[in-house]
């Protein structure tokens, strides 16, 4: 069996009348850590949302395969049940549902198995402890009144509990202090077992230093302009993206 987890081929996608992704291809194999960088407005978040089947984007061309199956027409929940996870830049607040009940429902949906309350809680608490997240948050309404940092941790907590095959982290490290970035990257590390893969969308080097990516992709103007090894990260850190755009224009 192939070790290809995700295969995105020549995806074009638009929001309303505006085309944002202009033919993006990407292959992620099992166990790999990929990084997607690029200037603001390049389409990074769109790319993540298109993989997760956000209904706000229309895919006009191209295909997405996951573990050899064409998932191009599948809805977000179907893709999630296959093992794709996306951490949100802006986690949604949903009153009336506790974080614990929500994750338990999700876990049951993703695994197809009921989650016994006490057993699940024990596991959830262990993940929370590892993320240095107060256990009391389990009983609070989903993301309601959480600070920016707490919301990010809530996302990583969900990822830890759901154990996806592919985790897409959309700027999960943004707005976090050094310690929090460390805790988050530790959480991601724990997920990586040689089989599971991660796609990290970020502006910052810090999380990449901790996670040692295998590949770096740079998205500019709806196209991937460069695929490279980890060394690219440093060049972007010192010189920004401008040189890439110029190169692309030539």
């Amino acid at each position: 069996m192939s070790d290809i987890l995700l295969e995105v081929s020549d995806i074009r996608a638009s929001a309303g009348d505006k085309e944002i992704l202009k033919g993006v291809s990407l292959i992620i194999k099992k166990g790999e850590v990929h990084v997607l960088m690029g200037p603001n407005g390049a389409g990074k978040s769109t790319f993540a949302n298109v993989i997760m089947a956000h209904p706000g984007y229309t895919v006009t061309k191209g295909s997405i395969f996951f573990e050899g199956a064409d998932i191009s027409r599948e809805s977000a929940d179907q893709r999630a049940r296959r093992g794709i996870f996306m951490s949100f830049q802006q986690a949604v607040e949903i009153p009336g549902i506790t974080l614990e009940n929500f994750i338990r429902s999700s876990k049951a949906a993703v695994t197809g198995q009921n989650q016994p309350i006490l057993k699940f809680r024990k596991q959830l608490y262990s993940y929370m402890d590892a993320l240095d997240m107060k256990r009391a948050y389990a009983g609070r309404y989903l993301n309601v009144g959480f600070s920016g940092g707490e919301k990010k941790k809530s996302e990583i907590l969900q990822m830890s509990a759901l154990e996806p095959k592919l985790a897409i982290l959309d700027e999960t490290d943004s707005g976090l202090d050094v310690d929090a970035v460390k805790i988050v990257s530790e959480g991601v590390k724990r997920l990586l077992d040689g089989e599971r893969s991660v796609l990290i969308i970020t502006h910052h080097q810090r999380i990449l230093q901790a996670l040692a990516p295998d590949f770096v992709h740079v998205l500019v103007g709806g196209r991937i302009l460069m695929d490279s090894g980890a060394s690219l990260v440093e060049k972007i850190a010192s010189e920004g993206y401008k040189w890439l755009s110029e190169e692309a224009l030539v």
Binding site: M52, H54, P55, G56, S75, A76, D77, R79, A80, R81, F85, M86, F88, A91, V92, I94, F102, I103, S105, S106, A109, V110, Q158, L162
Partner: peptide
């Protein structure tokens, strides 16, 4: 969408 992205 948020809930659906978690398999629901």
């Amino acid at each position: 969408f948020y809930l659906m992205s978690r398999g629901i």
